[in-house]
Write a protein that binds this DNA or RNA. Sequence first.
DNA 1: ACAAGTTGGTTATGCGCCTAACTATTATGC
DNA 2: GCATAATAGTTAGGCGCATAACCAACTTGT
Lengths: 147, 147
Amino acid sequence: MNFDQADAINQAIRRLSLRHRARTAALLAPLGLHPGQEALLLELARTGPMIQAQLSEALGVEPPSVTLMTRKLEASGHIRRAPAPSDKRASIVELTDSGKALTDQVKRLWCALAEETVTGLPAQTVAELPGVLNTLSGNVDARRLAV
Amino acid sequence: MNFDQADAINQAIRRLSLRHRARTAALLAPLGLHPGQEALLLELARTGPMIQAQLSEALGVEPPSVTLMTRKLEASGHIRRAPAPSDKRASIVELTDSGKALTDQVKRLWCALAEETVTGLPAQTVAELPGVLNTLSGNVDARRLAV
DNA sequence: ACAAGTTGGTTATGCGCCTAACTATTATGC
DNA sequence: GCATAATAGTTAGGCGCATAACCAACTTGT
């Protein structure tokens, strides 16, 4: 592949990352959330209580990041951490009532954001979008590459 | 749009951002670069010497980020900053010889990364990819929205 | 010509994410 | 049964990115 094509792709991914994150930040700010935290809340809402290692895997983020994110979300009262009875190393993370309420609001924003994001694209492209993007992610996933 | 569709899109973008950045970091590490810096070098190679405000605009990044990035790249000898003769506030940024050589290496990595990224996708999808991604970015671009 | 507004840049601070190095617990192999 | 390895989590430090607040220099309006 020549450089111009490659650059167009890489640069487009970079710009999308920056702009989508910035837009997410702007939408979450009124809720007192920072981008990244919404993913943790949504994952807990989807899967139910889970330990940090599972969150790390599900979010595609390293354990130290989970430590800090959970600490902050716990401090703001949206999640709760309790020691796991079966494994003294692990701590179980779950949504509080306030966290559940907040997650409902996040879900609404999430729909608005997705609609805004795909505006102007043909329906078929939109339908194929998640698959295409996940192929891209999978292709550069260091974890998968390492296996 | 229902939540599942929206989440599929937003989550796919998030994962792509994380994984593509991580892969970029892994590829740039041997060159002593961190992700983000390559964009600055490539922009300087593409456009020639420019002031930081132009870099900020071209990279889609805020001025304070440019201040820190240029400072670090200057410290490692890849770029040079000189006061602009016509405007005493501005500083002109340009590649050093070492920076030019490094950028050539970055270009090679850039091609390899793009090829790796789009592996397994049909040629037409790849051809349309930059346009689609730029549409997405444009749709959530706060600058465009503000206008 | 000068006050007022705009623009270029920096400093301070905070967040998410990372790697490296560490502790504490659990699982494994001989 | 005990040393060794693997796993859960934390701490420390670094980078890119952001916003807020600020200074210095340029531009503009009257």
